[in-house]
Every structure is written in C-alpha cells, then in structure tokens.
Write a protein that binds this DNA or RNA. Structure first.
Length: 244
DNA sequence: GCGACAG
DNA sequence: ATCTTGTCGC
C-alpha cells in the first residue's frame, strides 16, 4: 500500500492539494458497485485518533466486516479546516487494509470537492486509491445552497461554489455546482454531499440515496461512527465485531 | 480588521 | 471531533 504523503507544513499541504485537484475525475456511476467502505474516525485530546472502515454489501444491504486503526497524538497532523485529509487519511488507509477484501467505492465522513481547493478528504482518498468516492459531511465547509431546502425527507438542492470552482455547470447555480445539500430524513439538519473521485454530481446524490437510513446518516456511516467511538473507548485496533 | 471554519 | 443535563418519545 502506497503511503499517504505527510507534509511538513500547511504551505506544502496546500501545494499537494493544488496539484492533486487536477486529477479528480467528475464522471462515473458507483451506484451498481457491490462493495463499499464507509469511513469515520473518533479522536480525543490525549488519545490520538481511531479510524474505522466498515465494509458494506450494497447487494445485501448490510455490513459484512469492520476494522480500526490508531494514530497516536504525537504523530497526528493538527486539525485545520481545509486540511483534514492530512490528519485522517493515513489512518483510514490502515483501517482499509485490514478489511477482508478491498472496497470498490468509498463513502467518507467529510467533503469531496466541496472544498476551497476542490480536494476534500473524500476526493483526496479517491484520487490516492484511484477509487470512486463520495463525501458526506454533517456541516458545511465550502459553497452555498442554490435555494431553500424543502422540509420533506429526501429533499435536495445544489451546493454552489464560485465560478472558478471544481465542479459542473448547473442553471440553478450562479457559479458552479460542487455538491448537494440533502435532507436525508424528515426533521433533521441536512447533510452536505459532494463527489470525491470518479463520480458525477447526479450520481453522487443517487449513490447516497441508495443506502438505507434509520437516522440522518446512511447506515454504513452511522455504523462506522458508532464503532469509531467504541474503538477509542476500548483502544481497539484491527478487525472489529459488527455486533459490538 | 472581521467572520467563517469538514473533523 | 469532544463536552454536558435535561427532556421527549417509544
């Protein structure tokens, strides 16, 4: 497994993002893919970071395996908005390598191209692994909704970035569409969806809608979030029991 | 200078 | 991300 580059400072990190942004492919449809990995992490001040990968079978609509990896505090890149991949991606790669089989697509907790330089963690990981990927963030980092979002479940509006953004033209956007604001369930705050790599904008929304949802988060991400918290509490690394 | 700011 | 008490609802 190719190591994930670790920049010495933010200037170098920024140069990496600016270079890799050109490699993002905004077309493709991961909807028919069977094996998807959902990625989330849990971190606490003195405990480092625990990353979890959940292997999800889209055909059976269920999780089949999960694994965690740990990065000690001393080795962690600091959290700086816009540079999340340099903090979390290496841990995700380690967790992914512990799954019983490699995934065919990724669903990542964070932004895809809805990012100041078009390279949020989902896009960065997708390019690094050359896998289709989608970002799903609970909060906004970049872009503005094209308009008000309907209250009903499953409503979505384009997320628009300024003219130079990495994305696609959309009449609903003054500039460029970089993602979607999506109300995954009724009466919940919307989430922010954006393409990572090798996926188009309409397909990004279709891909996310294809997962079962009991809460605002699609099931594989909800599970990854739950397991990440438990992995940290129990300092658990390696394969994780699903029924945990 | 001020506000915004994934996890 | 984490922290924190109560509260509402099944």
């Amino acid at each position: 497994m190719r190591p994930f580059p670790r920049p010495r400072d933010l200037a170098e990190a920024r140069r990496l993002q600016e270079a890799l942004r050109a490699r993002v492919v905004l077309a493709g449809d991961p909807t028919p893919v069977r094996w998807v990995a959902a990625l989330d992490a849990s971190a606490k001040k003195g405990e480092g970071l625990f990353a979890v990968a959940v292997l999800w079978d889209r055909r059976a609509e269920g999780a089949v395996a999960a694994a965690s990896a740990h990065v000690p505090e001393s080795e962690l890149f600091p959290y700086v908005p816009g540079y999340l991949s340099f903090r979390e991606a290496a841990a995700y790669l380690a967790a992914l390598s512990r799954l019983p089989r490699p995934p065919q697509a990724l669903l990542v907790d964070g932004q895809g191209i809805a990012h100041p330089r078009g390279l949020g963690i989902a896009a960065h990981l997708g390019v690094h692994l050359d896998l289709p990927s989608v970002g799903l963030a609970k909060r906004r980092l970049f872009g503005q909704p094209a308009g008000p979002l309907a209250e009903e479940a499953d409503a979505a509006v384009p997320l628009c970035g300024p003219p130079g953004s990495l994305g696609a033209a959309n009449p609903a956007c003054p500039g460029i569409q970089v993602g979607w604001v999506w109300r995954s369930r009724a009466r919940v705050r919307p989430v922010f969806l954006s393409p990572g790599h090798r996926v188009g904008l309409p397909e990004t929304l279709a891909f996310a809608r294809g997962f079962p949802r009991a809460t605002k988060l699609p099931e594989p991400l909800r599970l990854a979030h739950l397991l990440a918290g438990r992995a940290r509490k129990n300092r658990q690394t390696g394969p994780l029991p699903l029924e945990w």
